[in-house]
């Protein structure tokens, strides 16, 4: 892959819905269940094909590490967007900062000190518009906020398509007893509302979840659950589920390990202008423990 194209791909993958075929963006905590008073986790954040391996690009997060310099592009400048914002929500609902951030060639790493007992949520949520159009037969793209659309995209652009995009990536970590404060949805975009606590998942047991789109049940939506570690097996081991009329789905975990859960929805119904299409995606890294 040419460097310029690689950086474009990185910018795209962070913003766009994460389709099952494309590169996946993910965070993986060093532990999800912790005991004791002085608990820390370290987290890897990367974009890759295989789960959970570092083989493509690091996941750029605002304020974490110093990004490697993007290579100077020849011709048209690659489309760049600012790094995503990482939010770490403590059990009491407050936001806390990551520490010791670093960006390497393949992955970003950061630490989180778990000073409180209970469940923490790590989330990377992006919301914005994606515009595509043609300028003298050349494809053009722009990403940003709705308020900046007019200044960046010609109103009379040919083949103009504007997509409202919401993406959210999460993982959960618990020190001591699991709590549920951080599990409350924001009611923006596609979100997972765990019925079974996400740090109380065990092989052989059935876990129940629901998905919301803008706070309402995301009905009849496909959910893909992929176990990590595919380097050491031939099958992807992917589990496919569909949400019911209440937006609920359940999964019986076949084996212990790290799993990547992903869902996305595209709609042209009820889309707020200036967008004419709506996309929303959600992904989470979940750890299933041995009983």
């Amino acid at each position: 892959m040419k460097p310029a194209f690689k950086w474009t791909a990185l910018a795209l993958v962070i913003c766009l819905p994460l389709s099952a075929q494309a590169h996946r963006a993910w965070m993986q905590p060093s532990a999800t269940v912790l005991s004791g008073d002085d608990s820390w986790i370290t987290v890897d954040a990367a974009v890759s094909n295989d789960l959970f391996y570092f083989e493509h690009v690091p996941l750029l997060l605002e304020g974490i590490g110093t990004p490697l310099q993007a290579p100077a592009a020849s011709g048209q400048a690659p489309m760049r967007r600012p790094p995503s914002q990482l939010q770490i929500i403590a059990p009491d609902g407050s936001s806390i900062a990551a520490e010791n951030g670093n960006i390497g060639h393949y992955r970003t790493t950061f630490d989180v000190q778990l000073k409180q007992k209970g469940t923490y949520k790590l989330a990377v949520a992006n919301s914005g518009l994606l515009a595509t159009w043609k300028d003298k037969d050349q494809p053009r793209r722009w990403m940003g906020k709705a308020s900046e659309l007019a200044n960046n995209v010609p109103a009379n652009a040919a083949d103009l398509k504007v997509t409202q995009s919401d993406s959210r990536m999460e993982t959960f970590v618990t020190s001591g007893n699991p709590t549920r404060t951080v599990l409350k949805p924001t009611n923006q975009g596609l979100e997972l509302v765990p019925i079974t606590h996400p740090n109380d998942l065990f092989a052989g047991e059935t876990a129940e979840f629901s998905l919301l789109i803008d706070g309402k049940p995301a009905k009849n939506l496909e959910v893909n659950i992929t176990p990590g570690g595919n380097r050491y097996r031939s099958e992807t081991g992917e589990i496919e589920r569909k949400t019911d009329e209440q937006g609920k789905f359940s999964v019986t975990w076949p084996v212990a390990g790290m799993y990547w859960l992903q869902a996305e929805t595209t709609s042209t119904q009820g889309v707020a202008k200036p967008a004419n299409e709506r996309r929303a995606s959600y992904s989470a890294t979940l750890e299933v423990l041995a009983p």
Binding site: V33, L34, S35, G36, D37, D38, S39, L289, A290, P291
Partner: peptide, 13 residues
């Protein structure tokens, strides 16, 4: 500093 509690989660059941 109760550091020995760090591994109690290994008694996972």
């Amino acid at each position: 500093d109760k550091k020995g509690e760090k591994w109690l989660k290994d008694l996972r059941q």
